[in-house]
């Protein structure tokens, strides 16, 4: 199918994007990589009046290593971040999780911030951000605000972002000493959306486990290690309100959280 008609602006600067968002609000849509939005437009599930293209806004195409985080601007493609030679040292979880995002061909165009703004409950980048306790920087013409990932994601394709705001940057906390990072995912085929995806930051006595694809958003929980782990995983599995869909039953999803979670954490 073909998109309904819209006006198109190839934005030159961040400022211009913010001004257009202020003027058009709900009627405008940002197009970043288009790897989710174009399908939505082609199927006419959305019919914006104005499309604001941020692909040429060079000031948003930065990856910056800061004191406590790796900051990624809105025009950075997934392939670009994944190809960063130092990524596995800086944010090991990203190096593990990102190869699971779609395919080589979609990562070549899809952006990091676009995936976060889109907020698919089974997407790898939102899951990584929530598990690591990362932040999202939102900006409108009125100013900037920084929000924790856990508060940003509010449901299926639903976030705390207001219609006049741009996701300008996401911040991934840097690797911490003594923590082991792991990622695992079950999908119908590699590159398909996850039935269940798990991201773990494993310390000596405690684990942060992020679960994607089960609840209506990525969820992070703290779990004990050792003998108490299986019960805690079971509780987590039930707390996520898993749903049946065409890909898998709710019971299967809960079982994956328990079983895969245990293997991921205890490394067996």
């Amino acid at each position: 199918m073909k998109p309904a008609a819209f006006d198109y602006v190839r934005a030159e600067s961040r400022r211009q994007v913010l001004e257009l968002l202020a003027e058009y609000g709900q009627e405008a849509r940002i197009i970043a990589g288009g790897q989710s939005l174009m399908a939505v437009l082609n199927m006419r599930l959305a019919q914006p009046k104005l499309l604001i293209d941020i692909n040429q806004v060079d000031e948003l195409a930065y990856i910056e290593l800061r004191k406590d985080c790796l900051a990624v601007g809105a025009a950075v493609r997934q392939a670009q971040l994944l190809a960063r030679p130092t990524l596995a040292d800086e944010v090991p979880l990203l190096a593990l999780a990102m190869p699971w995002i779609g395919h080589f061909q979609t990562r070549n165009r899809g952006t990091v911030c676009g995936s976060v703004a889109h907020a698919d409950p089974s997407a790898e980048l939102p899951l990584s951000l929530v598990t690591l306790g990362g932040e999202i920087v939102l900006e409108s013409i009125k100013g900037k605000r920084v929000i924790k990932a856990a508060e940003f994601f509010q449901g299926i394709l639903t976030t705390d972002k207001r219609a006049d705001e741009l996701v300008v940057e996401v911040r991934f906390p840097l690797k911490r000493e003594g923590i082991i990072y792991r990622f695992q995912e079950i999908a119908m085929r590699h590159g398909d959306f996850a039935i269940v995806s798990l991201a773990a930051c494993i310390g000596l006595d405690e684990v942060r486990l992020g679960v994607g694809g089960v609840a209506d958003r990525p969820v992070m929980c703290s779990l004990p290690r050792g003998a108490a782990l299986p019960d805690a995983l079971n509780e987590t599995a039930w707390s996520l309100d898993a749903q049946d869909d065409v890909h898998a039953s709710a019971a299967y999803r809960r079982q994956l959280v328990r079983e895969l979670g245990h293997r991921l954490i205890e490394g067996v």
Binding site: Y8, I31, G34, Q35, M38, A39, N42, M43, L51, A79, H103, F104, Q105, T106, N108, R109
Partner: peptide, 22 residues
């Protein structure tokens, strides 16, 4: 909608879906 890959072309040398670009 980006799934089948039949429309893949090179844009500035990089493989991308031409159905997901304007």
């Amino acid at each position: 909608h980006g799934v089948c890959g039949a429309c893949t072309v090179l844009v500035d040398g990089v493989a991308m879906r031409s159905c997901l670009m304007l």
